[in-house]
Amino acid sequence: MAYTLCFLLFMIGLYCAVVKKNMVKIVLGIMIMEYAVNLFLIMLGYFHDGVAPIIDRSEFDAQTQTVTAQFLNSSVDPLPQALVLTSIVISLGSLALLISICIRTYEKYGTFDITEIRRLRG
């Protein structure tokens, strides 16, 4: 159910990027797709009654250099979180790049409409 709703969010973003005529709307569709993918990766690592992957002082045995078995069995998966962390910042950089392309196109053609831009090009 939760995975399906996440996939529905992705499909809404894909619909927006494929069907809409406005350039900024296409960028927004790409952003919605990014949110859906990040959310899906984090949801794969989660399970019920999990704790955040940050070790507390009481959960670490300094003598044997090991964490307690309770933390080992209750921590959520930190690997997708580390991957998504880089992906979020990259999405901000690529958003700035896409928006600057949009602004430059608006300066040149005076419109955000991609069918209009295609007509004006020739």
Binding site: I42, G45, A52, V76, L85, I88, V89, S91, L92, L95
Partner: peptide
Amino acid sequence: FLRAPDIAITQIVVEVLGLIILIRAT
């Protein structure tokens, strides 16, 4: 809610900057 506080902090600050960029454009 999914026990990912690092991602939550990063997402909220990135979202603020992204909104500023998008509103500037539109």
